[in-house]
């Protein structure tokens, strides 16, 4: 028989020691923390800054949340092993972002991704895939960040969400010329849509 996937366990309260040690003052082991930015200077496309928080079911801002992000470049090509072509060399597409220990705010500066086709060929809305871990999260949560002012029509993934009012939980709100806000709610009123995919 086939082997089973190794079961997940919570990342725990000290996940930063392993994934962003410099951020928690452990210097000298790695030159720098991985995933500081998903883009380098010269990346093509519209550079945007997205800020947000992660809240739990009690309404508390989670100051220990760690989020990884993965996205295509402005032309909709993924920067690694995309069978359709080679991405913008100034887009790595992956970032590791941590909530501020005091405020719980996180910030992602990146380029807006292009549209990527779903397996059936229909174009998905421009999105950034998020994977959220923290103490109390037993298996990493998958969601997607979209842009409220983008062309999101015809996205087969968003169409899959039965209660269409919940689609709004996946839309980053425009707050300035190149600024967006994306608040994630793990549980309760306004709960963010999470995916099993």
């Amino acid at each position: 028989m086939y082997p089973k996937e190794t079961p997940s366990q919570t990342a725990g309260p000290y996940v930063h020691i392993g994934l962003t040690p410099n951020f928690v003052g452990i210097h000298g082991i790695y030159d720098q923390d991985l995933g500081a930015s998903p883009i380098a200077d010269g990346a093509k496309g519209e550079v945007v800054t997205i800020t947000g928080t992660v809240r739990d079911g009690a309404g508390m801002v989670m100051r220990d949340a760690l989020i990884e992000t993965w996205q295509a470049d402005a032309a909709g090509i993924y920067p690694s092993n995309d069978p359709r072509g080679v991405a913008d060399p100034n887009v790595s597409g992956w970032a590791r972002i941590v909530a501020d220990f005091d405020s719980g705010e996180w910030t992602l500066r990146t380029v807006k991704p292009g549209r990527v086709p779903a397996p059936d060929g229909r174009l998905m809305a421009p999105h950034i895939s998020l994977w959220i871990v923290a103490r109390g999260i037993n298996i990493g949560l998958q969601t997607r960040l979209h842009f409220e002012d983008a062309d999101n029509d015809g996205c087969p993934v968003l169409a899959r969400i039965e209660q269409s009012d919940r689609v709004a939980t996946l839309m980053a709100k425009k707050t300035g010329p190149s600024d967006y806000r994306f608040n994630i709610i793990l549980q309760g009123i306004g709960e963010t849509v999470f995916f099993d995919l």
Binding site: V116, G136, L186, E191, F195, L197
Partner: peptide, 14 residues
């Protein structure tokens, strides 16, 4: 308080 209450939206990977 950190587990989603709503069912996950399930679909094949992309």
């Amino acid at each position: 308080t950190r587990a989603p209450q709503r069912p996950l939206v399930a679909m094949p990977t992309t």
